[in-house]
Design a protein around this nucleic acid. Structure first.
Length: 745
DNA sequence: AAAGTACGGGG
DNA sequence: GTGTACGTACTTT
């Protein structure tokens, strides 16, 4: 058997009966697969009797089992436990674990994703550069030449092939679920070609291109939900194997589609299609790809040790979980099968104090000039790292004196927590990427996307602490974070006000200060940062900023609704129609035009002087609506289904649009998106009230009166406070959108 | 008046 | 293979 060493990147890994099949992209360009005879380990604890019973079961298994006694740490108690380490063939683990769990044995490290467990155990990660020692087809050892925390790692030069359906995005159709199956397009080396001929010819061409070009990555639009399933069907029907997997012995693995809830909204994920020895990445079914492209995706795969195809499709919570498990695994800490920690009992009064989230002030409603905004950078992760907040460090038996403000919890000072240990390198790496991006250069954009990927990890980490199903979550730890966050903001407020500045607004991790002439911004920043004990950055100085009033009560403000222009002319907009996905793009464009005009005011200039120009803008849009100079695209309302169409109780224009689509045979899931136009908002015939773009065959029909109403509302949202309030008519509140002739004539 | 429903955030 | 916030605005019944 030939022995050799080769330098290359660990490209793919998946289980086989004898171990892990590993694909390597060699520095010289070769693609080869080898077998790593690895077996996963899990651990069993319990008393002597229980372990004896396990030994008996293991002895009766028809395959080889390795066992050893090892000492491991139990995370929450910090106790050392002697446990039985069990190693079995990869493909046997899940069945054995299921059997032992059913017999109520205490198992650890037993339900991790197998490929992730492989990476933790071996100490490598996806896309790691290694020197591999090969013994024929066997991977006998390797040397890691890479570091997941390095910022300037090399990525192998990958061959991409992009698959899409032409005609799948036509006429505002959101995805091909709602359109006919189009023609297949291939893009390689920047050249796109449409496949010609009937299904047979197209399949043969595709199979040939895959074979000849041999891509490492097949990217697609809607590959998971539509393209791959359809190609599979055709491939079976015409008996033309496509060879998507580079591994000749493997087909394509399918995962079922699902709808789930996250951040209070439904998400629909099309069933995944995984390849072997090659990747399939569906750009339309991956949050990470959409947000951060392959730069962020590879970054996540490397630090979370999750295979790239999977990292593309899983939520960041899963990636974060993996980082925590990797940390536990390398630090000899036992990983529980599922979340077992119950919430500690607390008296009702404490619960009340602890349940508050971030601190929120009511802004000083109105238009303001010369305002500085400072943000605490990564406030929650910073608190976790700085204050050592982790599920196992909360209310430890040893440090009652290290109290957390308000909530009645305390934190350990003796033992470094798992969560801060995992977060600290992420915070540092993100800061390095941000600095590199700021420095410019050819890779600046790539660094920026990697920093964005890290940002998502940091954002998620806080939420995950309070998630009841998280393996390492604990609600008390979550409460400590928000409590410290509130303390930081309170200190900042005191710090600002004690220097005689006026605080206009404060929101979780941001503060807005009315500046005095000659104020030293950096001095102020340092002062607040020192007193609040959290890193602070100047977000910018506003030439003007408006805090919008509540529409229920014109005298009170809404914390998250404001817009302003920085002195450099850039806009920051929050909470108004322009920011909402369900606002027609026509109205977004109008609001943006108004705001951009306002942003061009000369320093210290009079905003009210711009009113005539602003009213002209509104008039133009109004006229366009009246004269029909608008497209369906501009009027379309994008609407996110929170349930299946049939489950809606009320017939809103949105649910009616969804129901119409469903009636034509389109299966819509919670979490999917429908775009529609309001055709006749109050028509007695409900199906005539709105129309999905996908069903729009003839000319555009729209409810001009309704859209004009929405337009006035959107215009008013920006202009309120600059133009005189409309005379009250039947409705007494001055904040209601004005009647047309009164204000705009 | 009450209940149903959608949205944002982070950059 | 997983975060069912939480407050506001608007609509339907």
């Amino acid at each position: 058997m030939p022995r050799k060493t080769t330098e290359g990147w660990l490209f793919d890994a998946y289980p086989e009966p004898e171990g892990m099949r590993v694909w390597i992209i060699e520095r010289g360009g070769g693609r080869r697969s080898v077998l790593d005879c690895w077996r996963p380990a899990f651990h069993a604890g319990g008393d002597a009797r229980a372990l004896k019973r396990i030994s008996d079961i293991l002895a009766g298994l028809p395959y080889p089992v390795e066992t050893a006694w090892v000492d491991k740490k139990e995370l929450f108690s910090d106790a050392t436990l002697r446990v039985l380490e069990i190693r079995v063939p990869v493909l046997e683990r899940d069945r054995l674990v299921k059997r032992l769990v059913a017999m109520e044995f205490a198992l650890y490290d037993a339900d991790m994703h197998l490929v992730q467990a492989y990476h933790y155990d071996r100490g490598h990660f996806p896309l790691a550069l290694c020197r591999f020692r090969l013994d024929g087809g066997i991977l006998s050892s390797f040397e890691l030449l890479d570091d997941p925390w390095s910022v300037d790692y090399e990525i192998p030069s990958l061959r991409f092939l992009h698959l899409s359906l032409s005609g799948s995005d036509i006429a505002g159709r959101v995805d091909p679920n709602h359109a006919a199956f189009g023609r297949l397009s291939l893009t390689m080396d920047g050249r796109t070609s449409e496949l010609e001929g009937g299904a047979r010819d197209q399949l043969e061409t595709l199979a040939r291109r895959l074979r000849v070009f041999d891509p490492d990555v097949v990217t697609s639009d809607w590959g998971d939900s539509v393209l791959m399933p359809e190609l599979e069907r055709l491939s079976n029907e015409h008996r033309i194997p496509l060879g998507f997997s580079r591994d000749q012995g493997r087909g394509v693995e399918g995962k079922k589609d699902r709808s789930f809830f996250t951040y209070g909204r439904a998400v629909y994920q099309g069933g995944a299609r995984y390849f072997f020895g090659r990747w399939h990445l569906d750009g339309k079914n991956s949050f990470m790809l959409r947000e951060t492209d392959t730069d962020g995706l590879f970054e996540i795969a490397r630090i979370a040790k999750i295979p790239v195809q999977r990292a593309a499709r899983c939520t960041i919570g899963t990636s974060l979980s993996s980082m925590q498990m990797a940390w536990a695994s390398t630090h000899g800490v036992l990983i529980p099968m599922e979340k077992q920690q119950a919430e500690d009992f607390r008296p009702a009064t404490e619960l009340l104090a602890a349940d508050k989230g971030g601190l929120v002030y009511e802004p000083d409603v109105g238009w303001h000039r010369n305002v500085a905004e400072y943000d605490f950078t990564s406030m929650y992760p910073e608190m976790m790292v700085r204050r050592n907040i982790s599920p196992e460090t909360v209310n430890c038996p040893c440090c009652p004196e290290n109290a957390v403000p308000e909530v009645g919890h305390h934190l350990c000072t003796k033992r470094r927590g798992l969560v801060p240990s995992v977060l600290e390198p992420i915070l540092l790496k993100r800061a390095r990427y941000k600095a590199l991006a700021k420095a410019g250069g050819p890779d600046a954009a790539s660094y920026k996307r990697r920093a964005a990927a890290h940002k998502w990890c940091l954002v998620t980490c806080f939420g995950y602490l309070g998630f009841k199903n998280a393996r390492f979550g604990k609600i008390e730890a979550h409460e400590c974070v928000t409590a410290w966050g509130r303390e930081v903001l309170l200190r900042a407020k005191d710090s600002v006000e004690s220097r005689g500045y006026r605080l206009l607004h404060a929101l979780v991790d941001a503060i807005w200060i009315e500046l005095r002439p000659g104020a030293d911004l950096e001095e102020l920043r340092l002062l607040i940062e020192r007193e609040a004990e959290c890193p602070l950055a100047l977000e910018g100085v506003y030439e003007w900023i408006r805090y919008c009033p509540s529409k229920e009560d014109a005298l009170s403000g809404v914390p998250g609704r404001y817009f302003g222009a920085f002195t450099n002319g850039e806009l920051k907009i929050r909470g108004i129609a322009l920011r909402r996905r369900d606002t027609p793009s026509l109205l977004k464009a109008m609001q943006r035009e108004l705001l951009e005009r306002l942003a061009r005011v000369e320093p210290g200039g009079d905003l009210k002087a711009l009113v005539p120009a602003l009213l002209d803008i509104v008039s133009d849009y109004r006229l366009r609506l009246r004269e029909g100079r608008v497209t369906a695209e501009e009027l379309a309302i994008t609407f996110h289904l929170s349930r299946e169409p049939g489950e809606y109780v009320h017939d809103t224009v949105s649910s009616l649009a969804a129901k119409q689509l469903a009636a034509t045979g389109v299966t819509l899931h919670a979490g999917e998106t429908v775009r529609y136009v309001i055709t006749a908002a109050s028509d007695a015939v409900k199906e005539w009230r709105s129309k999905p773009l996908a069903l729009m065959e003839h000319g555009l029909e729209y409810d001009a009166k309704k859209y004009l109403e929405l337009l006035e509302r959107a215009a008013w949202e920006v202009l309120d406070g600059l133009v005189p309030p409309p005379a009250p008519k039947r409705r007494p509140q001055a904040v209601k959108p004005p009647e047309l002739p009164l204000l705009w004539s």
